[in-house]
Design a protein around this nucleic acid. Structure first.
Lengths: 126, 126
DNA sequence: CTGAATCCGCAGCGATACTG
DNA sequence: CAGTATCGCTGCGGATTCAG
């Protein structure tokens, strides 16, 4: 990430392209709701309404928006069952599960450092 | 993360507290700029202006805001050298470097899946 | 049930100017 | 150089409504 100082050669042009694409993806993915959705999904297959219940505090709109984004990037698949009422299910793809690994790492890190962070906050706020 | 269904016992009250704190920390940390700053810092010690140059596209305001937040959570330390002009340096703490590991994981993941994502996007946009 | 679209308030963010 | 404060605006994001 954050490769810099490109030249003007064709190879560098390609590097620059990949780099800007990487930043774009990173911006898509490195946001609270997207990561929480991925974490909530896990290995399971969930419906829209189930996801809304799982991901605490997310609004209808944010959920659909992020689901579209994740689907577009191929991190999850959306399967529509042509019933009435409609039933739509979401499942992580292999890349999605890959990203989930790192999200998991963040969650572990969070819990592991709760104490340190809480203490640091108290001191800072004084 | 996302522990649920608490009872009303004292132990559960403590669990609930830790859980809400975890969510708060997660919300702080799971945002584009914070993660990019952490990634940019790495093992180095950088000045404010150096960080602004490293983290491409970040504004003065966002940088200070996120630096304060990261400092408050004990992820980095801010050392002021009482010279003129002032010189302020930022360095990741042990917990900060721990988080950086997972950020690194995300970056690796991004680069590793560039192809898949780009292809998925093209298909989706059609 | 899922999702698109609309409206709208407010916070996030950038730009700028000012202090130490 | 680093940081705070103020202003103004854009766009995020919530609430609501309508459609399939």
């Amino acid at each position: 990430m954050v490769t810099k100082q490109f030249g003007s050669s064709p190879e560098d042009a390609e590097l620059r392209r990949a780099d800007s694409l990487a930043r774009e993806i990173f911006s898509d993915v490195a946001n609270k709701w997207a990561l929480l959705i991925i974490e909530a999904l896990g290995e399971r297959t969930l419906r829209f309404s189930e996801l809304r219940d799982e991901v605490e505090g997310i609004s209808h709109k944010m959920l659909t928006q992020n689901l579209r984004m994740l689907e577009r990037n191929g991190l999850l698949v959306r399967t529509v069952h042509p019933t009435v009422p409609p039933r739509v299910e979401y499942t992580l793809t292999a890349p999605g599960r890959g990203l989930r690994e790192t999200v998991h790492g963040m969650c572990d890190w969070t819990h592991h450092n709760l104490g340190h962070i809480e203490a640091s906050r108290r001191q800072f706020d004084a």
